[in-house]
Design a protein around this nucleic acid. Structure first.
Lengths: 329, 329
DNA sequence: ATGAAAGCGCTAACAT
DNA sequence: ATGTTAGCGCTTTCAT
């Protein structure tokens, strides 16, 4: 049996109340002498407060949930790390729930986190489906990270980057490098699709007519990039640049291009999105738009914990993106 | 205020005990009629048991901790996913703690998880430092995953692959492909170093004299692979194969080789270790030894939860590795 | 400066 | 088949 406050109290010859006050630093009216004595006994005994009892009483678990599609997908781990660093440094634990972009799984995750009595949840929702319903089920403070949710309930924190502008930047970069026939390979979102819009705005500004045959919308994965190129090649389409919805797609693109002996960047230039660790490592190294994943996670955790502990209203926080020019353009 | 058992009891006109029994499926002696009635009220009210109260009573938090070096490093997320899948399907939450391979951070993580009253911990310890001390501080059931810990206390579960044999396999593969001068690039471990041993055993069996100039021990990262090759080249060393301690190193190797216009696999063959997602995607695709990371996580969670819930003794579990021959050999 | 009393929501004997 | 009682370890008035 673990040592409890009662044990400490008995050993120190004081009441549990006194011990509680000392542990919680409500020691305004505690004599320095007893304070020291109790503190020493605590240290010697290896006493650790029972968090279940504390939670039951205070209605706060000092735990936050992180709902995301899949931790084993690159990019998300960086967000998770940002959350964990900020959270733990402030005494909060992070419980993660993978949903595989499945709305049913998201519902389960929400119910699970509710049952775990988390004090808040950070949510990177799936790209398809009606996330507003999910958001409504979340009873705790909530911050939506990485994705833009339109019209969610009041008081929801938001941390994001302007993906429309980012995509505009990456596509414009291709244009500046002399590309005239730029393909878009990405994944469809429900509602406003920032990436697609950013791409179209860039080529429109350049006075280029849109060619829907060069737009391929699949998933945010390697296969999509690969398959898209296979399809373009099979159709005999001409293109000299590819703007990708994320780096995974770009890597798939490069693989397919390599297979067809199409040189990057000489024949076709490629630009990714996200700047996952492998963008730097691939050969050739991928030009991409950096999303500050770690910072987003950290900011989201900061926001929600500030709210939980100080009632500081959560707002919106837009973080900057940055073009990383490497070898594929 | 959330709805409690008391509310349900009042609404159903029964005692909280009856509700408790129904919720916990101890309904042997509950009449079908009351059972249904209570269940309906529960459903209608959206009642969720208060896990803090439950934990306080049962001394079980239904939460397990996962201590690991860094979730934003590929390979670990797969383990994490395996743990989370198994854990959540059985009602357990997973709290992760990053340690950055720092023993002090590991201590903090252990203290943190203890304070969170986790029912068990799954531990992938740092490669340096005296982990036995850490292990001793962990008061809960413990499973060590991915790493081999020698001489830890009794009753600790272990999930691992035979890395010595795996490294022997990858190096032997290089030998079979005709390599005569095989370099080893890896990271040093404290105590027995499986990977280094596996490598040496393979070249010794092939009757090749060991050349310590071709052994480079740094970190398990891209830079180490890159720097090692730079050093070999600068020293004018001849080598036709590289056996790497993990895939990150191998990727760094390929990058450096590419820079020096050394062709893979024509001039130098490269084999990695782990089979992270990017091994398949890199160009050329990396030949490597697959470690079943997801399965290891899943197995570790299974083991520890079986122990927690059924007292089933934890043992050792060796999972198989598998050579994945791709384009770099 | 310290403590007594009450109760958070739940479960586990022990009745009935 | 259902309820009474007690208590898990802690925090929070309210006394003293």
């Amino acid at each position: 049996m673990a040592v409890t406050m009662k044990d400490i109290a008995k050993a120190a010859g004081v009441s549990v109340v006194t011990v509680s006050k000392i542990v919680n630093k409500q020691d305004r009216y505690i004599s320095e002498e007893t304070r020291q004595r109790v503190l020493e006994i605590i240290k010697a005994s290896g006493y650790v407060p029972n968090s279940a009892a504390r939670s039951l009483k205070t209605k706060s678990s000092h735990t936050i949930g992180f709902i995301l599609p899949d931790i084993s997908n690159p990019y998300y781990p960086e967000i998770a790390r940002g959350i964990e660093d900020e959270a733990r440094s402030r005494g909060y634990a992070m419980i993660i729930c993978n949903t595989d972009n499945d709305v049913e799984e998201e519902k389960k995750a929400v119910a699970f986190l509710n049952s775990k009595m988390v004090d808040g949840v950070i949510y990177t929702h799936s790209i398809a489906g009606s996330n507003n319903k999910i958001v409504k089920k979340i009873e705790t403070p909530l911050v939506v990270v990485d994705r833009r949710v339109i019209g969610v309930r009041e008081g929801v924190g938001k941390v994001y980057v302007d993906t429309e502008a980012a995509m505009h930047t990456s596509t414009s970069h291709l244009l500046e490098k002399g590309c005239k026939h730029i393909a878009l390979i990405s994944a469809p979102h429900n509602g406003f699709d920032d990436r697609v819009e950013g791409y179209f705005r860039a080529i429109k500004e350049a006075g280029i007519r849109r060619d829907n045959r060069l737009v391929y919308l699949g998933q945010y994965d390697v296969e999509t990039g690969y398959n898209a190129i296979e399809q373009f090649v099979a159709q005999g389409l001409h293109f000299d640049g590819v703007s990708c919805g994320n780096d995974l797609i770009a890597l798939g693109v490069m693989r397919a291009l390599n297979k067809h002996k199409i040189r990057v960047p000489e024949d076709v230039k490629v630009v990714g999105f996200d700047d996952i660790a492998f963008a730097r490592i691939s050969t050739p190294a991928l030009t991409t738009v950096r999303q500050p994943a770690y910072e987003m996670g950290k900011k989201a955790a900061e926001m929600i914990i500030d709210y939980i502990t100080e009632g500081k209203q959560m707002g919106e926080c837009e973080l900057p993106f940055a073009l990383q020019v490497r070898e594929t353009t």
